[in-house]
Design a protein around this nucleic acid. Structure first.
Length: 952
RNA sequence: GCCGAGUUGGCGGAAUGGUAGACGCGACGGUCUCAAAAACCGUUGUCCGAAAGGGCGUGCGGGUUCGAGUCCCGCACUCGGCACCA
């Protein structure tokens, strides 16, 4: 493809070239800045102003300021939200639209490690560069509301929110978070006893603290976490791929027991799922979140093991199949495995169950050793597809199936996972594929408890009447569910279990608590210190923000990516002077030790929507009146939240889940007025690009590749085409700066908006951009004489045809704007422009609406033409044109005549034509007569005035 | 395996159950020019035909309907998410 170029040598000196566009664009950008055109007033505070009209809060997923700069894909969403914002202003709304920077993160830290330069220096420089690139796009942002998450007064409130979360607990009874102070008060008043029955008054001070600490929404806990030696930090579940690698960097991740900070997001599982019904989000994202939280309803069933005088609970979603449970399986790591391991193999134990070893203890130990040596990925490997090689070993114990008293063998097997449900299952080979495979391998009985349909072999997990599911006892306490459907059978079994103390209905979740600490330098420090008892204490608000110390070395200790045995070591731990502090926390100066982990870079993005509403507030994260105005629910029962949030789908379960969680905690604690941060979410697609490799597989510069006869050449060498991301290493990056230079920002904006629907990904094609430039040039030419530069607009009245085209365009473009169908809006504006050009109309009555409709898409050109039309004020608050219904009806319409569903003729008719008259005209049309060919007309369907369908 | 989205000219894409392919790119032809570029005008799904007109066409196979890209049933493929989750 040829490199970007545009003709600058023209015969006419006032043509809309990229140079002229550039002049116009820079001039208007300066004027907008100088006049504060896009400043959005607040109800109160330093940004207070007139807040008449509806409010409309638009947000983009804010960017990480990468040093690589922008490519043409990055601004797609920003342009779209800008068009929406400009359109809403023309509708009279008070529009809040600003852009901040998500500026903590790994690349700056890596850069710092490599160069020794403080990450802040590099980050600030990157932000400046990005601001410059984006300013040139002409985005209608309120510059007063921009911030970066690394700004000390932003960090202060991030830390403040952390403290609110730390200082609260989840009251299951009330279904909301409450301050720890209230819990402590209830304990002190004797209104509450500890879960283990302990009485507050009897507890030692440290015991009291540990009791409280154990229920905090932000807590320190030793548990299995994702340790990524290659990154030198632990990661949240959401940051680990299904393949067990880090989402960032693709390094291996290992499970390690480590003491780390977590957030009790699981307390909100139900609300996070249920409230998805109340927001206007893409169904796909809602589904991903539901999937990730993974709520499943079922039952907990208790199985007695008489020989060991104990019992274990299993979780099942299919209590109706309990009669088909022919064995039970514990995860190898289950805490009862040792207890359940028998002294000796029972009489007649099959050899396959013992792995040939002398005692259950040996067999169990051997199996556990093998399982422990495998990574999670290895344990799953080879099992999912076709589900072969299920392995396990018999514990030597039997458990009692509560519904029928049958003794069933208890196995351990690594196809049962520790982290889900109770870590133990009842195995129903008749209804579960995995259990079926295990039963086949170990010769265990198989009982179908749901009648499988004719011809179904193997495990049958579907609907059907229960069979083999009855146990009749003399005293009438037995259970009989034969014949019941799955749902009724479930209910019946759960009721029976509850009555007999053998289980209950329950719900489990896949979601785990959010691992919140990272062993990095470039993140928010925790506002936490430890005293001599090693329990965490929140730093008082007056001491916020806790700043990062300067350190000689920014890197965490990193390791070989495969070094699973390594241990995380945060860089802040090396800043001795910072770690050890003397503070007065109310009982005189004492020594404390600071928390040396930092927050993940999701912290800032979990609440930044709030800061846009009141960005300079020094007293609060956001003043309540401003927060409520922009984010509060407008009607009772609504969730509130940003009116339109646009960004990529990659944050479906990361940022969007975390932000919802924080917002709900803040709502519970009374700090925000709405239950959801983002009312409407829109996922824009990606702009992708072709990349080319030569015969060695090396990427070659995409802009030097030419297409000939369906093949791609670099010079005279054939190269291979790939399709995917735009990136430096792929040598296919096209930058906005190149587009500004070659076409101007308005052309670039119009092209991006006209490429296709906003939510669909599509390939970038530089050579097609010229089409948008030609369009803007035609608009320019309608109003401006290219030779003289003079305005050439008259006040002539519009002819009927032009009025019709104009008003259908207005009507259509308005609808398209409302629904963010910018591609079709542009197409309609092109059609109007082409019509005006063709009929030679440059009347003010036509071109003024055209300019106004074009302005959200090509704002600089819009302003320039509007100003040349004699208007002194910016058009930003000029009303968007409204169609006159009188001109929407055409003076004549084309009526299509179908014979047997095929189009056989077209006639021009009056729009008000009656059915009878139209039928007569249709039946007289020569080609229609020929098609009917003398056959009997059996039926005529008339949809006047557009269609007549004749059945013969 | 489960869940979700999708499949329309050479390309990006349009189409409240009613003229499939709007608009744009590219290609072809023309105007202007010594020439070229730019700009402008025209043609452009495909096959048959001199034309009029006709056949075939929205991943594949069925169905509903006067009429299906659109609705229903089944299938294939592509992309995304989840996955030994009980």
């Amino acid at each position: 493809m040829p490199s970007v170029s545009t003709p600058e040598d023209t015969n006419t000196s006032h043509r809309y070239t990229s140079a002229l566009a550039g002049d116009i664009e820079r001039r208007w950008q300066d004027r907008w800045d100088a006049e504060g055109t896009f400043e959005a007033p607040n109800p109160t505070g330093d940004l207070a102003g007139d807040v008449s009209g509806d409010k409309y809060f638009i947000m983009d997923m804010f960017p990480y300021p990468s040093g690589a700069g922008l490519h043409v894909g990055h601004p797609l969403g920003y342009i779209a939200t800008d068009v929406v914002g400009r359109y809403r202003r023309m509708r009279g709304d008070n529009v809040l639209h600003a852009l901040g920077y998500d500026a903590f993160g790994l690349p700056a830290e890596i850069h710092a490690v490599q160069t020794g330069e403080h990450p802040r220096t590099n980050t600030v420089a990157n932000i400046a560069n990005m601001r410059r690139q984006l300013r040139r796009l002409g985005l209608a942002h309120d510059p007063r509301r921009s911030f970066a998450t690394i700004d000390p007064d932003f960090v202060k409130w991030t830390q403040w929110i952390f403290i609110q979360i730390f200082e609260s607990w989840y009251d299951e009874e009330k279904g909301r978070a409450r301050p720890i102070s209230e819990l402590r008060a209830e304990y002190e008043a004797g209104l509450r006893t500890a879960p283990d029955g302990a009485v507050w008054a009897d507890l030692a001070p440290l015991e009291r603290r540990m009791l409280i600490d154990s229920v905090r929404l932000a807590y320190v806990d030793e548990s299995p976490v994702n340790w990524c030696p290659g990154l030198g930090t632990v990661l949240a579940n959401e940051e680990v791929t299904a393949e067990g690698r880090s989402e960032r960097g693709n390094f291996p991740v290992f499970t390690r027991n480590l003491r780390q900070w977590k957030m009790r997001i699981t307390a909100y599982s139900d609300r996070l799922i249920d409230d998805l019904e109340r927001v206007d989000w893409p169904e796909s994202v809602k589904n991903m979140q539901r999937n990730w939280i993974g709520r499943s309803h079922g039952a907990r069933v208790t199985f007695r093991v008489e020989s060991a005088q104990t019992s274990f609970d299993v979780f099942t979603t299919r209590p109706d199949t309990l009669f088909g449970a022919t064995y039970a399986v514990l995860a190898p790591e289950h805490e009862l495995v040792d207890t359940l391991t028998a002294e000796a193999w029972p009489e007649g134990t099959p050899r396959a169950w013992t792995t040939g070893l002398e005692t259950p203890a040996e067999a169990v130990a051997a199996y556990r050793a093998v399982a422990a040596a495998k990574t999670d990925v290895e344990r799953q490997a080879g099992s999912s597809e076709g589900g072969k090689d299920k392995t396990g070993v018999f514990t030597g114990s039997y458990a009692v199936n509560p519904v029928n008293g049958e003794e069933i063998p208890v196995f351990i097997a690594d196809y049962v996972l520790t982290g889900y449900g109770t870590g133990a299952i009842m195995a129903v080979p008749g209804g579960d594929q995995r259990d079926w495979e295990f039963a086949e391998a170990y010769g265990l009985p198989i009982i179908h408890t749901v009648e499988p349909p004719e011809g179904v072999e193997g495990a049958y997990p579907g609907e059907g009447p229960a069979v083999n599911s009855a146990h009749v006892t003399d005293d009438g306490s037995g259970l009989d569910i034969n014949g019941l459907g799955v749902d009724d059978a479930k209910t019946a079994v759960i009721t029976w279990l509850q009555q007999h103390g053998a289980g209950e209905g329950t719900t489990t979740y896949r979601l785990r608590d959010w691992l919140f600490s990272r062993q990095r330098y470039w993140g928010e420090p925790f506002p936490i210190v430890y005293d001599e008892s090693d329990q965490p204490i929140a730093v008082p608000e007056s001491m916020l923000p806790v700043d990062l110390p300067d350190v000689p070395d920014y890197s965490p200790r990193t390791y070989e990516p495969e070094d699973a045995e390594s241990t995380p070591e945060p860089p802040l731990a090396r800043a001795d002077d910072w770690v050890h502090v003397t503070l007065d926390l109310g009982d005189g100066p004492r020594s404390y030790r600071r928390e040396t982990n930092t927050m993940p870079n999701w912290a800032g993005s979990s609440w930044y929507e709030l800061r846009y509403t009141d960005p300079h507030n020094a007293e609060q994260m956001a003043g309540p009146e401003n927060e409520r105005y922009w984010l509060g629910p407008r009607n009772p029962g609504e969730t509130g939240g940003v009116d339109l949030y646009v960004g990529g789908v990659e944050h479906a379960v990361l940022h969007l889940l975390y932000a919802r969680f924080w917002h709900k905690v803040l709502f519970d604690l009374g700090h925000v007025s709405g239950e959801e941060p983002f009312h409407r979410l829109f996922n824009q697609g990606y702009i992708q690009a072709y990349a080319y490799t030569d015969e060695r597989g090396t990427y070659v510069p995409a802009d030097e590749v030419e297409e000939r006869d369906g093949q791609f050449f670099l010079g005279n060498k054939v190269v291979n085409r790939e399709y995917g991301k735009m990136g430096k290493s792929l040598k296919n990056v096209v930058t906005p700066d190149e587009m500004y230079d070659a076409y101007g920002a308005d052309t670039f904006r119009v092209y991006e908006m006209s490429m296709g629907p906003l939510d669909v990904s599509r390939p970038w094609e530089t050579r097609a951009v010229v089409g948008s430039q030609r369009f803007l040039q035609r608009v320019w030419r309608l109003l401006v004489d290219e030779d003289s530069g003079e305005l050439q607009v008259d006040d002539a009245e519009l002819d009927a045809a032009t009025l019709h085209v104009l008003h259908t365009t207005i009507d259509g473009v308005r609808g398209d704007m409302e629904h963010m169908r910018f591609n079709t809006a542009v197409a309609k504006l092109i059609e109007l422009t082409n019509h005006l050009t063709k009929v030679g109309v440059s009347s003010r009555a036509a071109v003024e609406p055209l300019v106004l409709m074009l302005a959200p898409l090509a704002p600089h050109l819009g302003e320039e033409l509007w100003s040349r039309l004699g208007h002194e004020e910016s058009l930003i608050r000029t009303a968007f044109p409204v169609a006159d219904p009188a001109h929407l009806a055409a003076s004549s319409v084309t009526c299509v005549i179908q014979v047997l569903g095929k189009v056989r003729g077209k006639i021009e008719v009056d729009p008000s034509i009656g059915d009878d008259e139209l039928t007569a005209l249709a039946l007289a049309e020569p080609n229609v007569v020929r098609s009917i060919d003398g056959r009997e007309v059996r039926k005529v369907i008339v949809k006047a005035p557009k269609l007549v369908s004749i059945v013969v």
